[in-house]
């Protein structure tokens, strides 16, 4: 898998390599669970609908074209933006699920700080009032 990620990064290098910021996966401060890379991957690809403790998760994502989303897709999910879009079109048009709701970074920080069921992604430099469960 690491090789695959490296390859994806190499191929996407033109976009990603120049001084990209780290992306943080964030939850409500009261959510003290540890999430594995697999949990994060499964939550953001709709395969897993709840946190490891069994509570339902509301997954939030960034708007299409946001460079933080591109970094997250590539490093956490091992997919390019268009591969993720193709994946979600398959899921969505076969009734197997819906992609995460897209919100801006400011809205993301506000929603995650307010709601213990949410999980989202932001630029690691912007984190405040939320708990970080993973960085990519």
């Amino acid at each position: 898998m690491r090789k695959l990620l490296c390859m994806t990064m190499y191929l996407g290098g033109v976009i990603i390599a120049p001084a990209y910021a780290e992306v943080a996966v964030i939850v409500h401060p009261s959510n003290q669970q540890n999430l594995s890379d697999t949990d994060i991957k499964n939550l953001f690809s709709g395969k897993q609908k709840s946190f490891p403790d069994g509570n339902a998760a509301i997954v939030l994502s960034l708007p299409e074209g946001d460079s933080n989303l591109t970094v997250f897709n590539s490093k956490a999910l091992g997919k390019s933006d268009s591969q993720m879009k193709a994946y979600w079109s398959k899921v969505m048009f076969t009734g197997k699920g819906t992609p995460p709701k897209e919100v801006s970074q400011d809205e993301m920080l506000k929603l995650v700080a307010e709601n213990p069921s949410t999980i989202g992604i932001v630029d690691a430099g912007k984190v405040s009032g939320v708990r970080v469960v993973g960085k990519y």
Binding site: A86, S89, F93
Partner: peptide
């Protein structure tokens, strides 16, 4: 948490791509 019951008209899940064979963007 993990079950879904669907009633109505759907694509028949035959081939691997049957359910979304018309969604060209997805393959």
């Amino acid at each position: 948490q993990d079950g879904t019951l669907m009633a109505g008209r759907r694509m028949l899940p035959m081939y691997y791509f049957s359910e979304y064979m018309e969604v060209g963007y997805a393959y």
